[in-house]
Nucleic acid binder design. Structure first.
Length: 472
DNA sequence: ATGTAC
């Protein structure tokens, strides 16, 4: 098997090398030359069927992205039909989210995409959507809560070392919830992110600094939470604490938080700028308006987005530091990951902008956190670097019922019974965040075993959330 | 998700 056989099939550019190395591996596995050529023709004919894994995944991803480039018009004109993309757990995903992803894959700047099993409808790109674009960033491809993220601290304490009442009072004292909520001046905590010069580099950032300073270390509203629970490590993991953490059960803190009012205003501002930039863009795609990287607006968004990403992680840092300090301990290990952000990433040999809107980065070996609901387990996972999923996984269980539908259909007593069955103590929390409003996390995890491996499990015990429209 | 209000 050599390069000539490959080029004769019509492979071009970086695809030649990828096809050749796959062919060599198949040869080593004992296949005949004609069988391998048949396989390569099949990959060529239908690359989307091979992106999920196996020897041909990288080649398939490369073919898909180069075809995207060949088809890309240089204007706001949409493709007549969406580029193909991988879907994990299709039977768990509603048609509305599929339609939104189809629309995203018709953008002229789109090159590759994937839909995670927790996907549901959002603004523009669906939550659970992963989209790779070329030289452009889509504010609503990242979402309103820029840098929304997860953090886990495993503490040097046994689960029984903290009783429910103490956990409740620590959460009440050291966390702040609610839209618009920040800290009073005397309770504020400092963080290096507030001292970055970036804040002075854009009028918008200068304007938002005071709000950011007041709200740092707070949790906000909606699906955000801070909780104490039991973390179970199945076996030592080389990626976790350098492989030093013993298997067993620990008291742990898990939080879900974002970039608060600061990130929301950055998102709102640049979404407006992007939509004005493409007045001729099809109305149905308006919320997917993009900013070219290299343009002043595009670079400004990129800078503000990344600052909001660091700010969101700083929120977690302060929350965990305050709780650990109150307990008089230092965490044994900490893990954090953003799940609403865009990254520059190599896809099929090219640098693309990978938007993850409610999707966990899952490069090979990278740790991430996938929470369930206020009463269901969350998982510490290790990425498998699946090329077809653009190295991503779900960011949670995903909504099954919209907020209004949950308030309409779920009964308070059923939610209370669900919590009681699992021994959960809840502070705040609205009916719209009820466990029954979410897909079963076990189902969602089962659909992505080719995207992540499970490293540990977190079972919530005392949970704080914002108070919804209707309390539980 | 945010906390203002085509």
């Amino acid at each position: 098997m050599n390069g000539k056989h490959i080029t004769k099939l019509g492979f071009q550019g970086p695809a030649i090398g990828l096809a050749l190395s796959a062919a060599v591996r198949r040869e080593a596995a004992g296949l005949s030359r004609s069988d391998i050529l048949d396989e390569l023709r099949a990959v060529q004919a239908e690359p989307q069927a091979y992106t999920a894994g196996g020897v041909y995944a990288e080649l398939a991803a490369q073919l898909l992205s180069s075809r995207g480039a060949a088809q890309a018009p240089a204007s706001a004109e949409l493709r007549p039909s969406p580029l193909p993309y991988g879907v994990w757990g299709a039977e768990l995903i509603d048609q509305g989210a599929r339609d939104q992803m189809d629309m995203a894959m018709r953008l002229p700047i789109s090159r590759a995409g994937a839909l995670m099993p927790d996907a549901h409808v959002g603004y523009g790109l669906p939550i659970g959507g992963v989209l790779a674009t070329e030289d452009a960033v889509i504010p609503y491809g990242v979402g309103v809560d820029i840098g929304c993220s997860m953090m886990l601290s495993v503490l040097p304490l046994a689960p029984g070392d903290l009783n429910t009442e103490e956990a409740r009072s620590l959460l009440l004292r050291h966390t702040r919830f609610g839209a618009g909520v920040g800290f009073e001046k005397r309770d504020r905590h400092d963080h290096p992110v507030l001292h970055e010069s970036t804040w002075r580099e854009q009028p918008l950032l200068r304007h938002l600094f005071d709000k950011a300073e007041a709200q740092i270390g707070s949790s906000g509203s909606g699906n955000h939470f801070v909780e104490f629970g039991t973390f179970t490590l199945t076996e030592r993991d080389p990626e976790l604490g350098g492989g030093e953490l013993d298997a067993g059960e620990y008291l742990a803190v898990l939080s879900h938080s974002g970039s608060r009012g600061f990130g929301a205003q950055v998102a709102g501002h640049f979404t407006g700028v992007a939509q004005k930039r493409w007045p001729a863009l099809d109305k149905a795609a308006q919320k997917l308006a993009w900013l070219p990287l290299g343009s002043e607006e595009g670079e400004s968004y990129w800078q503000a987005m990344n600052l909001a990403g660091r700010y969101a992680l700083a929120n977690h840092d302060l929350i965990h530091a305050r709780l650990a300090r109150a307990l008089g301990v230092r965490p044994l290990v900490q893990v954090q990951n953003s799940h609403n952000l865009a990254w520059k990433q190599q896809v099929g040999g090219r640098e693309l902008i990978v938007h993850r809107k409610g999707a966990t980065p899952a490069e090979a070996g990278r740790l991430g956190l996938i929470p369930g609901s206020m009463a269901d387990p969350g998982y510490l996972v290790r990425g498998r670097g699946n090329a077809g999923a653009l190295q991503s996984a779900s960011h949670g269980a995903g909504r099954q019922l919209g907020r209004k539908a949950a308030e309409r259909t779920l009964a308070k007593k059923d939610v209370q019974a669900y919590l009681k069955d699992r021994g959960i103590t809840l502070i705040g929390g609205g009916i719209d965040e009820a466990p029954q409003a979410y897909k079963r996390i076990e189902d969602v995890i089962a659909r992505q075993r080719d995207l992540v491996d499970l490293v540990g499990e977190f079972r919530p015990r005392v949970v704080r959330m914002d108070t919804g429209h209707e309390d539980v």
